[in-house]
Design a protein around this nucleic acid. Structure first.
Lengths: 241, 241
DNA sequence: CGGCTTTAATTGTCTGACAAATGAAAATCG
DNA sequence: CGATTTTCATTTGTCAGACAATTAAAGCCG
């Protein structure tokens, strides 16, 4: 772990990189305690504020956690799925908003990913997950439901579908992707969407999962994608006018 | 944007969150210049080192870039696909290594995701991309190729396949996911893999893409997954002994 | 007008200090 | 002796002030 004062990078960035590599390659195991800030400063031959900036960089990526007090310090953090998803959602949301992704592109990506889990979901879905899906559908039929609540239930439905695949790695990738695209989807929802049609597609999906019929799940997802895509075209055509 | 000195969170974390929200919700547009560190310190009523820690947190997520000098400062960064992918790979790699994901789970997720882009790739693949795939296959048949070079070519092949879908959002999600799983895949590669079999599957995929035959692409991917899965079982069975 | 110098603004880094939290050791008391 | 309280050392969190390095713009000169 060496630091070059003449590098174009900041010292704090170099130190953060050195520590990050030690964590990624396993030199620093989960829950291991890093040297104290004063010790790190001495090791790298920099001041404590510089070390602190490096540690804050790692903390921003949830790679470490810090604790004050006698037995305190910085500890290697076990990255949880929730933290990882939160990070992914932030990144993904910004990527979508900053690069002018069209609704069509986002929709295509979203359903391509969701189709990826359909066969596994049909195979592995539990009775509980099926019940959860039915419960969300029921909620979506309630009269007097606000648009916000309908959207939340819609998201929950798709998230349960993703989790029915019973693959945590897959769930992590898909949940983050779908969650990040939700705001874009809501643009449509709040203006033009017919709840009856959506609920019908959701019911089809739930039925297909109950029958463990993967191709029927895929067909229902295709229908939902087509419907949403047509709505999107209408909304954006109306806007352009 | 208010800061609570009695919050359980650090001041720098609160400031980072406030600024991050301003970026995400669009109050701070791409390339906008943030106030100088001294101004931020005055606004939030904290010291400059505290502001700097907050800014380093944002820099760690590639949300801002900083520049020294007279017209310098911190600027909202346009998140590029490359930066986003690098961040995703780091997160994803750690998630896999820290949560003891089994080879089977990773393999299942990886091929589920790759299948997601197969129909789109068959539809949208360009002649150039097809040529790239053929070139990688040719490289993989060269005698005297090191294991490292073979793995690199394998990764390039799959990455080109993903990019053939011509959907940047999808490519971003998939490329990050596949890249992060590569080390796990290499465990297999370096011990038991037959290059001839792999090359044959790659050739099948390229042929199917040339014919724009989505179901043939899916079938070839399935075959490759099955082959890799069987190899994995053997390797881990041998290890357990 | 073009090139050079100066200047002001801004980030990067350092030093030294104090506050706050916290666990462990020491002291005290029943 | 045992339990409780107190003290203390360690460590992170925050602050103030300073100087160095960088850089764009303003000013100056030929």
């Amino acid at each position: 772990m060496k630091i070059d004062p003449n590098s174009p990078d900041d010292l704090s960035a170099q130190i953060a990189t050195a520590l990050r590599e030690a964590i990624v390659d396993g030199s620093l195991l989960v829950d291991a305690r890093l040297p104290s800030e004063a010790e790190l400063a001495a090791q790298f031959n920099v001041s404590r504020p510089t070390v602190r900036e490096a540690l804050k960089r790692l903390a921003a990526q949830s790679l470490i956690r810090t604790q004050r007090g006698a037995a305190g310090g910085a500890f290697v953090n076990r990255l949880s799925y929730d933290e990882a998803r939160a990070a992914q959602v932030t990144t993904s949301t910004l990527l979508l908003s900053m690069n002018q992704i069209s609704f069509d592109t986002a929709l295509e990506a979203r359903y391509a990913l969701e189709r990826a889990c359909a066969p596994l979901a049909a195979q592995h879905r539990s009775a509980d997950q099926l019940a959860d899906l039915r419960a969300e559908i029921h909620r979506q039929t309630q009269p007097g439901l606000t648009d916000e609540a309908f959207c939340a239930s819609d998201t929950a439905f798709h998230r349960t579908l993703v989790e029915a695949a019973s693959n945590p790695v897959l769930s992590w990738h898909l949940a983050g992707a779908i969650e990040a695209m939700q705001p874009l989807m809501n643009v449509i929802t709040f203006t033009a969407r017919s709840r009856e049609v959506i609920v019908q597609h959701h019911t089809d999906i739930a039925n297909a999962l109950e029958a463990r019929d993967a191709s029927a799940v895929l067909a229902s997802l295709d229908a939902l994608e087509t419907y949403t895509g047509d709505l999107g075209d209408k909304v954006f055509a109306a806007r352009a006018r």
